[in-house]
Amino acid sequence: MKSSAFDPRSKLIGAFVGTLFLVMFTHWVPLAASLGALAVMVLLLHLGRSWIHFLTNLGFAVLTFFVIVSLAFDLLTGVVAGLRLLAIGTVFFLFFQTTSPERLSNALLKTGLPYPFTFVLSASMQFVPVLIRRARNIRDAQRARGIPIEGGPRTLFHLPALVGPLLVQAFKFADELAEAMEARGFGISGRRFRFEPRFRWVDWMVVGISLAVLTAGLAMKFFLP
């Protein structure tokens, strides 16, 4: 995860404008060009490795999409659909890679979302690795007594052996977490944050550029033949 100089709110606006922009094109050339530009950004931010990882995840969806659309319509439409999915995916990949859930949740709080919601967003991230470790332990404990939870279709019938113990532990864990939160003043009014997100001139610039690009795109679309 990279931190960036921009406020998550301006980046979010940028990402949405980028998506709109990508949706406007129905030809593969501008889409491929946008994807190229995005790839350059990825490389500039040194996110190449995680991008490749991301692509292997998205790859399956893109491929399915491409095949379905190609069959339903024609090859070119399929290429356009695949490219667009890839480009939009990358826009949000960039957004999420440069925005930690904590900063996002702080910024969302500023825009008026309720604290419980933004708290869930920032806190749940901390427990993902904890629960992954527990899930591994449970899987090992069950495998040790002959229940195969090892991947493969047979896993389907043995999921309760993994999910059951995990759920019961997780709910106990949730109660412990709730107690710990109360013991540190969760729920008191007048909470004051040490680092407040600030909308600075760079953020206004991002918003400005986004809007300019959007206008240019719209102009091209409607006034050029």
Partner: peptide
């Protein structure tokens, strides 16, 4: 102040 038994459940910040 109370420090609970399970340290994992008490740490919920980044």
């Amino acid at each position: 102040g109370l420090v609970f038994q399970n340290p994992d459940a008490q740490l919920f910040n980044q």
